[in-house]
Amino acid sequence: MKYNFIIITIILLSISLLSSLIIIYSIINNQIINFENQLIEIQNNDNSNKEIQKKVNLFRVLNRKKSIEITRALTLLLSINLIIILLLLSLYIYSIQKPINYFYKKIKEIKINNIDSYKQIEPKGSIEIRSLVLAFNILIEKIINYQKLIGDINKFQGWKQISRIIVHEINNLISPIQTYTEYLLEKQSDNDKLNFILLKLNDIRNVLQKFREISHLPDANLFIANIIPLIKEVIYEFKSVELLSNIEEIYLFIDPVLFKEILRNLIKNGLESGEKTNVKIKIVEENENIFIQIIDNGSGIKEENLDKIFEPGFTTKKGSIGIGLSIVKTLVEELNGKIKVESKINEGTNFIVEFKK
């Protein structure tokens, strides 16, 4: 609002000054023309008097010289006025661009895997920009709080309700940020940084989509089902996945929807563990237990991270929020199963899901 008032004031003063210069020039120019006409009239009326003719010619020369001086002076004033306007406009543009650049720099410094270290951005600039920064600070604060909440997700039986709350609340925070950014996008000539902000908002929406998918998973409805068709159905959704088993029937007491969700997450995790990675699914029967192994030939997991990968919020992937494997563990336990992991760097990883027959 303050900057809008400044620019409007500059424009009004400029118009006023330009109008005044034009009016003054018109008045002076008319007077010069009238004086010139009077001199011509005197000259015509008294052609015989050489002294008067001489003085008239002298006055005409002086009049024209004065006219040129006045024109130059007014041109100089007009040029100075335009320079002042350009300087003030440049200052105004800089005053808007500076806080946007500052905001852009701070956003680039945010690390999704270390968001707890985030320091609130100081609001600067116009009301619109300050509102944008404040909304963004609130958004990050909410994300940090919800990340801590996710860290305790296994302590909550109502984790799906928590996910719904997260999606709803953060969506409400994103909307004003996107509105302010799009508003500024229409006003600025340099849109790269504002487009970067919109891109980051889109990344946050993609994260929310993951929460939304989690929140819509049904409650466990356990019954005896043949898992082989379920495994084949999930495999069909991916490339580079192979089932290493000729068994046609294995019946377990499970929820088919949640069972397929477990497989999807583990297969996706394996395929994303390296370039040109393949995933193989192996089924092993031992006594009263069924072991489903999801094996990949990816980059592997460091030994010191093996005990952490099922912890909510832990991730080594860029752009990930680290809830996929935590949710897998929760779903496996809802189906009364167990999950563990074996891995070697540069050789691959084997997730082993165990169920009772």
Rank of each mutant, 00 (worst) to 15 (best):
Q209M: 06
K210S: 10
F211G: 00
R212G: 11
L217A: 05
L217V: 04
P218G: 14
A220Q: 08
N221W: 03
L222F: 11
I227D: 03
I227N: 00
I227C: 04
I227L: 05
I227F: 02
E233C: 11
E233V: 04
I235W: 07
I235Y: 06
E237T: 12
E237R: 12
K239E: 15
S240N: 14
V241H: 00
L243M: 10
L244W: 12
L244E: 15
S245N: 08
N246K: 12
E249W: 10
Y251S: 15
L252V: 01
L252N: 03
D255I: 02
P256D: 07
V257E: 09
F259D: 01
F259L: 06
F259Q: 07
K260E: 13
E261G: 03
E261N: 14
E261F: 00
I262D: 04
R264C: 02
N265K: 15
N265L: 15
N265R: 15
L266K: 00
I267P: 02
N269H: 09
E272V: 02
S273H: 02
S273V: 02
G274T: 12
E275A: 10
K276S: 11
K276M: 08
V279N: 00
V279G: 02
K280V: 07
I281A: 03
K282I: 03
K282H: 08
V284T: 10
E286M: 05
E286C: 03
N287A: 11
E288C: 07
E288W: 08
N289C: 04
N289W: 06
I290N: 04
Q293R: 13
D296H: 02
